[in-house]
């Protein structure tokens, strides 16, 4: 699941500026599970913006603010995006509460409108309990988890180290952020449990980073090419 966090209200206010009418579009996918971009958050954000617009009527040049609210099942699927056909005609901007994928699908559908992200997508994670998500994957496109005990050092080590913990692994924690467990400590412990510490003596070869963040060919173009 894609985990996102809301942008600050300061950012949102800046997006709205002196505009008279904007739309806020939520997404029923990942951002509803981690509730930052679902129907309820659309309502809340709209309410906050209306209050702000009223209070700041003078600084906004006495512009009233109208907000159109909408939430679709998933912003990352063109079929659902297409259901918005003909909407937002007199809006000047759209704030999308979906991840970056959803924001771009929406922007493609409404190229004449400014589309702003209302959340920051931060990682692909596992849902542990409401409000708690484990960061687990950055979609690097070259998975090596099979050699690191089922734990990913690319997404979970601050330096994405492939050959063991750096000199800043202390008491099981990362020097960069003491709350973060050192993934190499975890890998070490798991390998020790499995009686396979020898696997960590192998020098991990240099990684091919050309998929991400290199992006030689966007993955969808690669697939399209194969199909044609």
């Amino acid at each position: 699941m894609i985990v996102a966090r809301p942008k600050s209200f300061e950012d949102i206010k800046r997006y709205v500026g002196n505009r008279k009418k904007v739309a806020i579009v939520g997404c029923g996918g990942c951002v509803t599970v981690r509730p930052v971009g679902g129907q309820k958050q659309v309502q809340e954000l709209a309410a906050l913006l209306r209050l702000w617009a009223k209070k700041e009527a003078l600084t906004r040049g006495s512009q009233p603010l109208t907000i159109e609210e909408e939430t679709i099942l998933r912003q990352c699927e063109p079929e659902f995006i297409n259901s918005l056909e003909g909407r937002f005609k007199d809006c000047e901007a759209i704030i999308s509460l979906a991840c970056g994928v959803g924001v771009q699908c929406l922007a493609d559908k409404f190229p004449e409108l400014e589309v702003f992200p209302g959340v920051d997508a931060v990682f692909m994670g596992a849902t542990i309990e409401p409000g708690l998500y484990w960061e687990r994957c950055v979609g690097c496109g070259n998975c090596i988890i099979g050699e690191t005990g089922g734990l990913c050092p690319v997404s979970r080590c601050a330096k994405s180290l492939l050959n063991g913990p750096c000199g800043g692994s202390l008491g099981g924690h990362c020097e960069v952020s003491p709350e973060t467990p050192c993934v190499w400590q975890l890998i070490y412990e798991r390998m020790e449990q499995r009686g396979n510490l020898g696997a960590l003596d192998r020098i991990m070869p240099i990684k091919d980073w050309s998929v991400r963040p290199g992006r030689l060919v966007l993955e969808h173009l690669r697939v399209e090419k194969k199909e044609s």
Partner: peptide
């Protein structure tokens, strides 16, 4: 640094 037992092995690498 930790894990202490791995430090000499890491040097070997």
């Amino acid at each position: 640094a930790d894990p202490f037992a791995f430090r000499a092995r890491r040097l070997a690498k």
